[in-house]
Amino acid sequence: MKIEMQRVNEDYLFEAKGKSGVPILIDNTVNGVSKGASPMELLLMGVGGCSAIDVIHILKKQRQEITHYSIEVDGNREVVKEAKPFKTINVHITLEGNITPEKAIRAAELSFEKYCSVSITLEKSVIVNYEITLNSVKIV
């Protein structure tokens, strides 16, 4: 897997593209107005996107009817030398539809423990927690 990045302006704005060719803007979000996501935001988006694709795929295979899916990913950072890596990442999945709670729980377990390459890549250095709300009821 490979990506390419090109600097767009005289500061920190970059345009990144992967195999799909879809451009993603990356910028320094610390000072002033940002025109793109920060690298750390992109990491959280990667965790969220990877697990969302897994969970939806698993539930669709089980013929579960998903009428709404949203995800919130929050990272807690710590200072290590001059860097601020994530110490924990908390994922909150919100599902609505005709979905069996046990199947939703199992889909998330499979994603985070077996299929999600992003969270599995991070698991040696970051604790990834998740919770699920199904039809307005917290089930995990």
Results as ranks from 00 to 15, higher is better:
Met1Ala: 04
Met1Phe: 11
Lys2Glu: 12
Lys2Val: 15
Ile3Ala: 15
Met5Pro: 06
Gln6Asp: 14
Gln6Lys: 09
Arg7Trp: 07
Arg7Lys: 13
Val8Tyr: 10
Val8Ser: 06
Asn9Leu: 13
Asn9Glu: 08
Asp11Val: 15
Leu13Ala: 11
Leu13Asp: 04
Ala16Glu: 09
Lys17Thr: 14
Gly18Ile: 11
Gly18Asp: 08
Gly18Arg: 04
Gly18Cys: 11
Lys19Asp: 03
Val22Ser: 11
Val22Lys: 09
Val22Trp: 04
Pro23Phe: 12
Ile26Glu: 01
Asp27Ala: 11
Asp27Pro: 10
Thr29Ile: 12
Thr29Tyr: 08
Val30Glu: 14
Gly32Val: 08
Gly32Ser: 09
Val33Cys: 03
Ser34Glu: 12
Ser34Asn: 12
Ser34Tyr: 11
Lys35Pro: 00
Gly36Leu: 04
Pro39Met: 14
Glu41Lys: 09
Leu42Ala: 01
Leu43Cys: 09
Leu43Ala: 12
Leu44Phe: 15
Met45Phe: 09
Gly46Asp: 07
Gly46Cys: 13
Ser51Asn: 09
Ala52Phe: 07
Ile56Leu: 08
Ile56Thr: 10
Ile56Val: 14
His57Lys: 15
His57Glu: 13
His57Asp: 07
Leu59Lys: 02
Leu59Gly: 00
Lys60Met: 04
Lys60Tyr: 09
Lys61Glu: 07
Lys61Leu: 09
Gln62Ala: 12
Gln62His: 09
Gln64Cys: 14
Gln64Ala: 10
Glu65Phe: 15
Ile66Thr: 03
Thr67Arg: 13
His68Ile: 01
His68Glu: 14
Ile71Arg: 05
Ile71Trp: 02
Val73Ser: 00
Gly75Tyr: 01
Asn76Glu: 14
Val79Pro: 08
Val79Lys: 13
Val79Ile: 13
Val80Trp: 13
Val80Gln: 06
Val80Tyr: 11
Lys81Tyr: 06
Lys81Arg: 14
Lys81Pro: 02
Lys84Trp: 06
Phe86Arg: 00
Phe86Pro: 00
Lys87Cys: 05
Ile89Pro: 00
Asn90Leu: 04
Asn90Cys: 14
Asn90His: 09
His92Leu: 15
Thr94Lys: 08
Leu95Thr: 10
Leu95Arg: 05
Leu95Val: 07
Leu95Gly: 05
Glu96Asn: 14
Gly97Ile: 08
Ile99Arg: 01
Ile99Ala: 02
Ile99Asp: 00
Thr100Leu: 15
Ala104Gln: 00
Ala104Ile: 00
Ala104His: 00
Ile105Cys: 06
Ile105Leu: 11
Ala107Cys: 10
Ala107His: 01
Ala108Thr: 05
Ala108Met: 12
Ala108Phe: 02
Leu110Arg: 13
Leu110Phe: 08
Ser111Lys: 01
Ser111Phe: 00
Glu113His: 07
Glu113Asn: 12
Lys114Glu: 15
Lys114Cys: 12
Lys114Asn: 05
Tyr115Cys: 11
Cys116Val: 08
Ser117Lys: 14
Val118Met: 08
Val118Pro: 01
Ser119Trp: 01
Ser119Ala: 06
Thr121Gln: 13
Leu122Asp: 01
Val126Pro: 00
Ile127Asn: 13
Asn129His: 14
Asn129Gln: 06
Tyr130Pro: 03
Glu131Cys: 04
Ile132Val: 10
Ile132Gly: 01
Asn135Ala: 02
Ser136Glu: 15
Ser136Ile: 10
Val137Ala: 04
Ile139Met: 08
Ile139Glu: 02
Ile139Lys: 06
Val140Asp: 06
